[in-house]
């Protein structure tokens, strides 16, 4: 279903969820859960947003049923550790490429996706200071390197 413009802020989290449906369904589930909670805060009044959010809720309930035997879903404390480990692994991969002077689309995407996953971590509660810094750094790095490559410059 098309994303209403009022919910644009969760577009990339939902795309990350789709990208992980096969690769890592736990990441998909919590990306959609974050999108659901954030979407309800953004706009749950207008008909098109309500319709979108009801469909998203249907999908979450189905995923929870299908993944009921997965501890990362049945116990949120385990889910929290899963998402945090996944975000850190992605961040460290991109950071390692950056420090090695290897700039490419994949490392930019890894920086950006890790920053989205640090957003997702907020469903479990307040972010740690380290995670807040990682998110800020990862999002800045993705933007900076992307702009350098667009302008034909070598990132410092």
């Amino acid at each position: 279903m098309a994303l209403p413009s009022q919910l644009k802020a969760i577009q990339h989290h939902l795309r990350t969820a789709q990208e992980h449906d096969k690769r890592d369904p736990v990441v998909s589930y919590y990306c959609r859960l974050y999108a659901m909670q954030t979407g309800m805060k953004l706009d749950s009044k207008t008909p098109e947003c309500r319709k979108f959010l009801v469909k998203l809720m249907d999908q979450l309930e189905m995923m929870k049923k299908e993944l009921s035997d997965n501890e990362s879903i049945s116990q949120e404390v385990v889910g929290n550790a899963h998402i945090e480990n996944y975000a850190l692994k992605m961040f460290l991969y991109a950071d390692n490429e950056d420090r090695g002077g290897r700039f490419h689309k994949n490392m930019i995407k890894s920086f950006y996706t890790s920053s989205l996953l640090y957003d997702v971590l907020s469903v479990f509660g307040e972010l740690s200071e380290e995670n807040i810094q990682h998110r800020k750094y990862a999002r800045w790095k993705a933007t900076y390197i992307h702009n350098c490559m667009k302008n034909g410059e070598t990132p410092k």
Partner: peptide
């Protein structure tokens, strides 16, 4: 119809909130 519309909207909002709480075992 205006008030009917808004009451339908708030009913749906409430239902979404309850389903979210249930999803997260917070009932």
């Amino acid at each position: 119809t205006g008030s009917l519309g808004s009451s339908v909207a708030s009913a749906e909002q409430d239902e979404l909130s309850q389903r979210l709480a249930k999803l997260r075992d917070q009932v």
